[in-house]
């Protein structure tokens, strides 16, 4: 990307303290910029029907199961499928994408992470996501836009620095790792989120040395991100991580850890944060990988 950003940044003072203020927009900014040329708003939710009940005017839907996951291999879609998806949604390589979604932006952050694997340069999250937009009484519509087809190039994924696979995670034991699941999943009392479907892990516990920081500690009650000072107090103060550290984050399937990936990478400016999307549904089923039970990193 050499061309300058054409869609202006959000100068909200809250964002100024973050390492990369350009990676967030506020609901007010989005309301003011809907329809700007070069901007495409993407809704990405856990619930596949939520978009149909009403969405931000002009926004397009990207579903993590149906659009981003390969239907056969446990992997993301390949470069041609990604290019086709983006083209269909009216997204060009230099489009500014603002992603928002339900559940404090878990799936929005996950979509952003997948977009980043393909090197899309200008992706921003809507601070507070769908819930905040709705709580503020802002407009929602059931009109589904029919974007003019774009011509997104076929770009192979460059996962280095963004994605960690099991052998790399294994080699990383002893270096900074964050487990973002609930305390009961971390300790091994249970293998899936309370009140969530069990996606099948045979063993419970965590990867040796991983520190427990549930993803939700980075979010306020309204789904917005905590301030830079609050986030620093958690990750660098309490957990002793440094922005120069090489960090791996994981959860159950990589969605909640995308939220933490965003926090460390863009809000606190860590140099290298990888998401281990295999996460516990891989580690907890793999043969002879080490596991620690209990509430200590081990």
């Amino acid at each position: 990307m050499t061309s300058p950003t054409t869609v202006p940044l959000d100068s909200d003072p809250k964002f100024a303290d973050y390492a990369a203020p350009e990676a967030l927009v506020s609901t007010q900014w989005l309301a003011d910029h809907l329809g700007d040329p070069g901007l495409v708003v993407v809704e990405s939710d856990e619930d596949v029907l939520l978009y149909e009940t009403g969405h931000i005017p002009g926004s397009v839907k990207v579903d993590w199961h149906l659009d981003l996951n390969d239907p056969v291999t446990r992997d993301y879609v390949d470069a041609p499928a990604f290019a086709e998806l983006m083209s269909r949604k009216g997204i060009d390589r230099d489009t500014t994408i603002v992603v928002y979604g339900d559940k404090s932006n878990w799936w929005a952050a996950y979509a952003m992470w997948v977009f980043s694997l393909f090197g899309h340069s200008d992706v921003r999250l809507l601070d507070g996501g769908r819930a905040k937009w709705q709580a503020e009484g802002r407009e929602l519509t059931t009109d589904v836009p029919t974007p003019e087809r774009a011509d997104y190039p076929v770009v192979e994924r460059d996962e280095s620095g963004l994605r960690a696979f099991l052998p790399e995670v294994r080699a990383h034991i002893g270096r900074p790792m964050i487990d973002v699941r609930s305390p009961a999943e971390y300790s091994g009392e249970r293998t899936h989120m309370p009140d969530y479907p069990d996606e099948g892990a045979l063993r419970g516990g965590h990867i040796p040395g991983a520190q427990s920081v549930p993803w939700s500690r980075a979010a306020n009650d309204d789904g917005t991100f905590r301030s830079a000072a609050e986030l620093r107090a958690i990750y660098t103060g309490e957990k002793g991580l440094q922005p120069t550290d090489d960090v791996i984050a994981y959860c159950r399937i990589g969605e909640r850890s995308s939220h933490t990936w965003f926090v460390l990478r863009y809000l606190l400016g860590f140099d290298k944060v990888r998401n281990y999307d295999g996460s516990w549904t891989e580690w907890g089923n793999a043969v002879r990988v080490p596991i620690v039970k209990g509430d200590q990193p081990g």
Binding site: V48, H65, L66, P197, E199
Partner: peptide, 14 residues
Amino acid sequence: ADAVSPLRLRGMSG
């Protein structure tokens, strides 16, 4: 299954 994904349908089985 193609419209919502098989994983989501497991909720209905439950």
